[in-house]
Design a binder for these strands. Structure first.
Lengths: 225, 225
DNA sequence: GGAGGTGCTGGAACGGCGTTCCAGAGGATC
DNA sequence: GATCCTCTGGAACGCCGTTCCAGCACCTCC
């Protein structure tokens, strides 16, 4: 053990699962979902594709690990002193912000069944649902509804991020979509046309939070069978 | 015009966009999301990949068209004589059933921003939300919440369908997942363990409908700002 | 009836992907 | 020094979406 090099520095810091996952996150953030390639990753790590497979089983696992890493930091705080409603709001908004920063996480969560990261979210939501006094038989339904709503928004945000060119900002994007809505057939899309104005001025994050509040109202007010 | 062949029958019925989309839907249904390949599609249509591109711009458009075709038939009925709540339930369950039959539709909807099929769903939901008497400023929020919940469930159903081998049926699958949940760390996953039993006995469709009802309760009971 | 144009076909080929394979470098152990 | 094991990274495989293009059947006009 004495001979163990203090500073290995062989030629650089050696490959490791963490370094690979870190580089994958950077790549996904900078180049987008389609940009994560074993070749591009290998180049960024100054190695070959084969070396990566020694540390990671395949692309699926790598994507899951990258998602894990982001969600884990988003779930860092624990809000133990808040009311159940506040805790759920904070949890949901933390996830929203993480997905906003890393849109590919939204895609990944929406297409992954209950894997570790989402199970943890489910658990946290569930505890607060229980704290709300929801009858035991309905706790699963209530927690699932919240989780599915969050996943739906996650997927849509990721889809929107994929659609609009990185150069344009959010309000320009909303403006474009709102204009499209306003030119739909009035007979067939009366409602959509009517709310196009709200779309143009709306705030994704606030809208998301309002949806959470809506479901929480439903959970509190619902007469459970 | 007189010389126009009554029965063309050149060598078979000619290629057409509809025939291609139909074959794509069959392929997706039978082989799964990853099974839709231009080569496989060409083989099924007894042609080459190049011929398909004459009728369809690319894979993205083909997938969108296939989704459109399925969603359109799911949205066929219009339930004009129902109450708003009933109409929304019927609409949502129609979509649920369509996704249950064609899981790949769930993936597609969850990763597509507001394209024609979902815009139509949004419009239908919105009209019923309006009929519920929701104040105008909140109609967008209410309709979005419902739509995002539906999309979340769609994505999860598709993910589940992708996970479990086609051979096993739903109750076996639920049983497996429930057993996994029951073996989680009690300290970290108290809630999840507690509801594992409910997961085992639950009915996806009824659970989905309960979530819709929950949000509808929220919409009705919420005190809009 | 021939010439030319057009709409459509389908097979070959291209570049890029995830993944596998493997010769071998480097350090630890005897 | 010999041996072993971990880890590397470049080459290669098979499949993908897509493009290219020579050629066919059919219509139209001379």
């Amino acid at each position: 053990m004495a001979t163990k090099a203090r500073r290995p520095e062989r030629r650089q810091e050696p490959l490791s699962r963490e370094r690979i996952v870190g580089a994958a996150v950077e790549l996904l953030d900078s180049v987008g979902e389609g940009g994560l390639t074993f070749r591009a990753l290998a180049e960024r790590l100054a190695t070959g594709p084969g070396a990566i497979y020694w540390h990671v089983a395949g692309k699926t696992e790598l994507l899951a690990a990258a998602t894990d890493a982001v969600v884990a930091t988003a779930l860092a705080g624990d809000h133990t002193d808040a009311t159940p409603n506040e805790a759920i709001r904070a949890l949901a908004l933390g996830l929203f912000d993480a997905i906003d920063d890393h849109p590919w996480v939204g895609t990944q969560l929406a297409r992954t069944p209950a894997q570790p990261p989402m199970l943890q979210v489910f658990e946290r939501i569930g505890r607060q649902v229980r704290a709300l006094g929801v009858p035991e038989a309905a706790q699963f339904t209530a927690a699932s509804a919240l989780l599915n709503y969050i996943l739906g928004v996650a997927g849509q945000n990721a889809a929107n991020a994929r659609t609009h060119r990185p150069g344009t900002n959010r309000s320009e994007f909303l403006d474009t979509v709102a204009s499209e809505w306003e030119e739909l057939d009035p007979a067939q899309y009366a409602f959509t046309r009517a709310v196009a104005g709200q779309l143009r001025e709306h705030d994704d994050r606030a809208e998301f939070a309002a949806g959470i509040d809506l479901i929480l109202t439903g959970i509190t007010a619902h007469e459970w069978p």
